[in-house]
C-alpha cells in the first residue's frame, strides 16, 4: 500500500496555505468593489479557481498523491467545463 509511507504535510505548510487562501479572499472582495466592467466577474472566477486549485493540491493532497488522481480530477473538470461550453452554444446564439 503505497499510501502508507507517503508524504506528510507539515503544520507550517498548512498554515501558510491558509494564509494564502485568506489573502486571495480579501483580494476578491477588493477587486469586485472597484469598477472593471465585465472583468469583475472574470477576475472573481479566476481567483476562485486559483483558490480551488490550492485547496485541491495542498489540502486535498493531490500534489503528493499518485499522479493518476491528478489526471482524473483534471479530466473530470475538463468534461464539466466542456459541458458548460456546449450548453452555451445554445444561449449565446439564441
Amino acid at each position: 500500500m503505497s499510501e502508507n509511507n507517503h508524504h506528510i504535510s507539515s503544520y507550517k505548510d498548512h498554515l501558510l496555505v491558509l494564509l494564502i487562501l485568506i489573502f486571495l479572499t480579501v483580494i476578491t472582495v477588493a477587486i469586485t468593489s472597484i469598477e472593471l466592467g465585465p472583468f469583475n466577474t472574470a477576475a472573481a472566477m479566476l481567483i476562485a479557481s486559483v483558490k480551488a486549485a490550492v485547496v485541491l493540491l495542498y489540502f486535498m493532497h493531490l500534489k503528493f498523491d499518485h499522479k493518476i488522481y491528478r489526471i482524473t480530477v483534471g479530466i473530470v473538470l475538463a468534461i464539466y467545463a466542456a459541458v458548460i461550453v456546449v450548453t452555451f452554444f445554445d444561449y449565446f446564439y439564441r
Binding site: V86, F89, D90, Y91, F92, Y93, R94
Partner: peptide, 9 residues
C-alpha cells in the same frame, strides 16, 4: 434551441 447549437449537436 439556437440554430448554432442544433448543427453543433
Amino acid at each position: 434551441m439556437s440554430s448554432t447549437a442544433r448543427w453543433v449537436f
